[in-house]
Design a protein around this nucleic acid. Structure first.
Lengths: 187, 187
DNA sequence: GTCTATACAAGGATAGAC
DNA sequence: GTCTATCCTTGTATAGAC
């Protein structure tokens, strides 16, 4: 039920999604929908909590807190890619929030914590010598999340690419780039 | 004037942005706004045309059509990063369209042409030996645009990072990845 | 070019019957 | 749990005065 609502939210944006359309897609009347949720904001809150919880579980797992920065990077990237694939709709919703309500603002704050955590891991990676010195750790974090978050724009679970295969491709790209092995970056 | 309207569109999403708010931000009444635009859809169309035109200019420049695939890749990446920085708001608007009106659908179609063109360049890059064989050209295109498009989420023109510096960082990352020179990708 | 006033539809949410 | 009917606000857009 919530999955269908999230689809409507994504089709129009949370603000522009109307209860009439939600009710229609659920095959119910508007007032029947209000029997299950107290408000539109509550629907949003429940949906966001699922994907935020999944991401928090990744970043709070022992493998994300212990070991070398490189190992921790690999773990959180794999976890974030998995969540992006498995909770595509809900992550899309999260990524497109605009912060015009209390629920949105709190979700955005929880999301920003992931950015800070990954950035910290990259800072440690630079110290341990596993991050190239000519890319800023903050930029590395933004590139990495930019890459992972963009997965929701095109990934389809019914396709050939499995989440773990995609995660390995993301890791290959972010660690080694697109050039063939042995080729110089420049010129 | 259109710049302020685009900001309102981005703050709430095109559909949810109201003429009352647009008028308020412009310091005008609703009817005065209608003296300058015939409809909300027209405002959207004008704004999208600017950023789409800038991107089309990049992909249709001689440097994007001639030379090695690697050189063409570098040229379109630099151009797309520049547009992302210089037209951040308008590109944000384009990237968040949902296709619920004719104007949106046509803009999304023009946008998809860029994806196809970059993908084609990566296919040629694979043939000429400048793209690693273990990453699919289609995936390389999605990773690349995912990276570039995510710039609008955090780039601020008033910051220290200039567009051309950012473009070089993007190229460094996408060609060589985050590992230090000489370090193996795995483990 | 800008305003106030207004038309008419659609928004979120509730009341009360079944 | 679901419905129809309804409340009150807000939406896009227009009319007509200044």
């Amino acid at each position: 039920m919530l999955d269908i609502i999230v689809e409507v939210f994504n089709d129009h944006g949370y603000e522009a999604a109307t209860l009439e359309l939600i009710a229609k897609r659920l095959g119910l009347s508007k007032s029947a929908v209000y029997h299950h949720f107290t408000s539109k904001a509550e629907m949003l809150e429940l949906a966001l909590d699922q994907v935020l919880g999944a991401l928090e579980a990744v970043f709070e797992a022992p493998e994300a807190l212990e070991g070398s920065a490189l190992e921790r990077t690999r773990f959180v990237v794999r976890g974030a890619v998995r969540v992006a694939c498995e909770q595509r709709s809900r992550l899309t919703l999260l990524l497109r929030l605009r912060g015009n309500s209390e629920v949105e603002l709190q979700a955005m704050q929880r999301r920003r914590a992931f950015d800070a955590r990954l950035r910290r891991i990259f800072e440690l990676s630079l110290e341990e010598g596993t991050l190239r010195f000519d890319i800023d750790p903050g930029l590395a974090e933004r590139f990495t999340f930019g890459l992972i978050n963009s997965i929701v724009e095109w990934y389809r679970p019914e396709g050939d690419l499995r989440p773990d295969q995609l995660a390995e491709a993301v890791l290959l790209f972010m660690r080694g780039g697109l050039r063939p092995e042995g080729m110089a970056i420049l010129p």
